[in-house]
């Protein structure tokens, strides 16, 4: 049985705590990585993951499987992230994701703490605008269909296909320039 079916089955039986355990073990990575892409801060992403699951737990009894669990969780995560970013923006301590530039000192510091791939992946993602980055991850990593992504992001399927292609194209150009030594 798929986790989605397991969860719905347990919910029908009124076992919301057990349903929640399966939900967390299957979607913790998804929620955290989504939060991480939006917030760009590990501590904030961890706190938000906790918040997402508490919110999901409190409204789990009302979930009847009209949409996919992943879509539902994505909507909660996205809303909470946007709220958190809005709060940060008002406080004036937000770092714009799309224009994130890493200084050479910061870069070398980070390399010590992070694995090489982690650093490379974050660099690659930082060159993509939000919609392209989200589409790339949801399509390439989460292997979701364009229909599912369309429901999550509220973008047309045609628009998503274009976003995905542009993301791949930009990454390809970025990797070529990196290979030629134009980017460290």
């Amino acid at each position: 049985m798929k986790p989605e079916q397991d969860i719905l089955h347990l919910l029908e039986k009124g076992k919301s705590h057990e349903a929640m355990s399966i939900l967390m073990s299957n979607y913790k990575r998804f929620v955290h990585s989504t939060a991480m892409r939006y917030l760009r801060d590990d501590d904030d992403a961890k706190d938000l993951t906790q918040e997402v699951f508490i919110k999901a737990y409190n409204s789990l009894d009302y979930f009847r499987g009209d949409s996919k669990i992943q879509t539902w969780l994505y909507a909660i995560t996205r809303n909470l992230c946007l709220n958190a970013l809005d709060k940060k923006k008002r406080k004036g301590n937000i770092v714009q994701m799309d224009t994130l530039e890493i200084s050479s000192d910061e870069r070398s510091d980070r390399l010590v703490n992070e694995s090489e791939f982690s650093h490379f992946f974050k660099q690659c993602m930082s060159i993509l605008p939000e919609k392209q980055r989200e589409t790339f991850i949801l399509r390439h990593v989460e292997e979701l269909s364009y229909e599912e992504i369309s429901e999550m992001l509220g973008t047309s399927i045609g628009g998503l296909k274009a976003n995905y292609f542009q993301a791949v194209q930009k990454l390809s150009q970025y990797l070529s320039s990196k290979k030629e030594g134009n980017i460290q």
């Binding site: 955290h32 508490i54 791939f117 292997e143 390809s172």
Partner: peptide, 29 residues
């Protein structure tokens, strides 16, 4: 080349490593 450099498995592994330390404590209803 893009998909080889950014392998899905590597990204998932990275995400799993990051999420390992996340503890979700559910409140009692």
């Amino acid at each position: 080349h893009v998909f080889t450099a950014l392998k899905k498995e590597d990204i998932i592994q990275l995400m799993n490593d990051e999420v390992e330390s996340v503890d979700v404590i559910l409140p009692f209803k």
